[in-house]
Amino acid sequence: MTTPSRREHASPTDPALSAIMSERRQLINLAYRLLGSLAEAEDAVQETYTRWYAMSRERQEAIESPGAWLTKVAGRICLDVLGSARARRESYVGEWIPEPLPDRAEWAAGRPGDGGGYPADPADRVTLDESVDMAFLVVLESMTPAERVAFILHDVFRYPFAEVAAIVGRTPAACRQLASSARRRIGAAPAPVSPATERAGVIRDFKQAWEAKDIAALVALLDPAATMTADGGGRVGAVLRPVVGGERIARYIVEMAGRAPAPGLDLLERSVNGSPGLVARYGGATVTVAAFAVADGRITHIWVVRNPEKLRPWGA
């Protein structure tokens, strides 16, 4: 990451500099959960460090807890981004889905054009747990920016409401109410309850049925009320509205499979945001990432991300 000239205040071996940079992983984890976009999270964290290094050495040394300062600034930046993102997503072509994240072995080392900004090891970036599950992130998208920030900071990262209030700009009592409202949204959303091993088996069967273009087998694997949402961002072909109904989804994906250029197209079982998913690669490049929600042995939701801008971490 390139930072302003204020970095000259400390040498690369300066313990103070090391302590500041060690907060990066925590900030990336926070920003990704708040924004649902790895690219926006990167930008928010870079802006946070830019503000730190824009201060004089004296002001930096006067800050009792640099980590708390960085978190506060990053949280406020994310809150502003969330507010503007709501307007941007209203004009987004088709459905907007959070950016999917690969598992450790799938991580691409470097974002095109940024000098290799993505470390090869995602453990240095985003910890994959239930708080980045695609179904969970989609529910977060339904919250107001203040609800999302209060909930993530308090319930996921365990910040006390007094500190949350300083970031959100409301009283601790108001932030408590925001988090409570967010919890009700989480509780009202159907959550996948199948164990990971069962979900992996269902996804494997789905992959085989898709490759065989077996509509009956696909229908058996899909909940009758299942929904498929796709995100092409207007950059590549993708259905603009959710496809609802197990049979409709089965027929749609079989039709799409018939149009796909079979030679060179590989459908692979991969971890997506820490859960079993599928990745399609064509000519060695990732062209589609699919995340799934599974309950009672059937797929209840499929999120298909095809927007190339959201597939950068997957590489080749």
Rank of each mutant, 00 (worst) to 15 (best):
P12I: 12
A16I: 13
L17S: 08
R24E: 10
Q26M: 09
I28G: 00
L34R: 00
L38S: 01
E42A: 09
E42C: 08
E42W: 10
A44S: 15
V45D: 01
V45A: 02
R51K: 11
Y53C: 02
S56A: 12
R57W: 12
E58G: 11
R59H: 14
A62S: 15
S65Q: 13
W69N: 11
L70I: 06
L70K: 03
G75Y: 00
R76H: 09
C78K: 00
L79F: 00
L79M: 11
D80T: 12
V81R: 13
L82A: 01
Y92N: 09
Y92K: 09
G94Y: 05
W96F: 15
E99M: 15
P102K: 07
R104I: 14
R104L: 12
A109N: 11
P112L: 10
G117C: 10
Y118A: 06
Y118S: 06
A120G: 12
A120P: 05
D121N: 14
D121P: 08
A123M: 12
A123V: 13
D124W: 11
R125H: 05
V126R: 00
L128H: 03
D133A: 15
A135Y: 04
L137P: 00
L137R: 03
L137I: 06
L140Y: 08
T144D: 05
V149I: 09
V149M: 02
D155C: 09
Y159N: 08
E163T: 11
A165T: 01
A165D: 00
A166M: 10
G169A: 08
T171Y: 07
C175H: 08
S180V: 05
S180F: 07
S181T: 15
A182T: 06
R185D: 03
G187Q: 13
P192F: 04
P192D: 07
V193R: 14
V193Q: 13
P195R: 09
I203Y: 03
R204G: 10
D205R: 14
K207I: 02
K207C: 05
Q208V: 13
A209F: 01
D214K: 02
A226C: 03
A226H: 01
A226S: 10
T227W: 04
A230I: 00
D231R: 00
G234F: 07
G234D: 08
R241H: 14
G246N: 02
R248W: 02
A250F: 03
Y252C: 06
Y252F: 12
E255T: 12
E255F: 13
E255S: 15
M256A: 12
A257G: 11
P263T: 08
G264A: 11
L268P: 04
E269Q: 13
E269N: 07
R270N: 02
V272T: 06
N273P: 03
P276Q: 07
G277F: 04
A285S: 14
V287P: 00
A293C: 04
V294K: 01
V294N: 01
A295E: 13
A295K: 14
D296A: 14
G297K: 00
G297R: 03
R306P: 06
N307W: 00
K310W: 05
K310N: 04
W314Y: 04
A316H: 12
